[in-house]
Amino acid sequence: MRPGFSKGWRNPVSTTLLVIATVAAMFGAAGGYLAARPTINRLRAALADAAWQLTHDPLTGLLNRAGLRTVHTAIAASGGPQPNIVMLIDLDQFKEVNDTHGHDAGDDLLMEVADRLGQLADAYGASVARLSGDEFAAILPIRGHGISRLADLFTTVIAAPVTVQADSGPVTVTVTASVGIASVASTDSLEDVALHRADIAMYHAKQQGGDRHVLYTPGMTMPDRKRRRGPRLRDLRRDQRGSVE
């Protein structure tokens, strides 16, 4: 089981709303709603901001992993199983940009990629998250969309040149992406099924040279680690804990 994600995990938005309701009830009992209203409004705004921070990435403004879980939970609860596409998107040359031009340039690149992914999400009814570092994920309903066409759109918009602010001034950089895709039911586990399968497919895209997408097929396994760039933090956690991320 992923660290920090257990059977006792609660939806952070629901928890925040519960706090708001509890505080409002306390003020109402103590001095009447009208007298307490300004304070309740301030608390509501502060707690809403805290809830946003719990579910969003502070750099890019996209959902974070907790936010993606919240979206997935809502989709799963909205009806019977529906076919969904889950994409795991990993930038191919991000480390080189960071090492060559500095971390500020890397942040500029991440924010621009996030903006582009966000625009695609708005156009196709998707939810996009930054999971960590240079890794993003998207969930969207199939709804007749061609999977290969959608994946091509994601890789194409990422590969467009980006102007970033390096230590020496503005520079234009280009990165590509390796995209792993899994077609799953909306009720499938996000961590153990959807993201896990997309992760396997993404590594196959990476192994094949990047700048491409690979669709997960039944029975697909991780490629030989000797042919990859090296284990990631999530791989080490899986090895240490014996759990699937």
Rank of each mutant, 00 (worst) to 15 (best):
T174P: 02
N41W: 08
L150N: 01
V13R: 12
L117W: 01
K7I: 09
A76G: 15
A151V: 02
A74L: 08
A46T: 12
T172S: 11
V23E: 04
L68M: 15
G125C: 06
A159C: 13
R116I: 07
D90C: 02
I40C: 10
V214Q: 11
T155R: 15
G242T: 08
Q82V: 13
P83V: 03
L109Y: 07
I20V: 14
H204Q: 11
N11T: 04
F5Q: 05
G169H: 06
L88V: 04
P223C: 10
V184C: 09
G209F: 11
A66Y: 05
A160T: 12
V86W: 00
S168C: 11
R42H: 05
H145P: 00
D92R: 02
F27M: 07
D167H: 14
R130M: 11
Y124P: 00
R2N: 11
F27Q: 07
H72V: 02
T55I: 15
A25F: 15
V157G: 01
D188A: 13
A121W: 10
R227A: 13
G219D: 09
H103A: 09
V23K: 01
F5R: 04
G144K: 04
Q93R: 12
S189T: 10
L109R: 01
Y203I: 02
T172H: 06
G146I: 03
G125K: 10
A198I: 10
G180E: 03
R69C: 06
G125R: 12
R237C: 15
D211T: 06
S127W: 11
R197W: 15
T16W: 00
P218H: 10
M87V: 04
E112V: 13
P223N: 08
A129N: 01
G146N: 08
R65E: 01
D92Y: 08
V244R: 14
H103C: 06
T100Y: 03
R42A: 14
A137G: 04
V171S: 05
D99L: 07
D57K: 06
I200M: 07
V244P: 00
G118Q: 06
R237E: 14
A21C: 07
Q165L: 12
R116E: 07
V13C: 03
V193A: 13
F27C: 09
A35V: 12
A159P: 02
S183M: 14
W52S: 05
L109E: 01
D211P: 01
Y203G: 00
A48Q: 10
L190E: 03
Q93T: 13
L153P: 00
V184L: 09
D104A: 12
V193P: 00
D192N: 13
R130Q: 10
G133F: 05
D90E: 09
W52G: 02
E135H: 06
G61A: 07
G102T: 08
T22G: 05
I89G: 00
Y124E: 09
F94N: 09
D199A: 11
A138F: 01
S183T: 14
A160L: 15
D49V: 10
S243F: 15
A74N: 15
I139M: 08
T176K: 06
P223Q: 04
S178W: 00
Q53F: 13
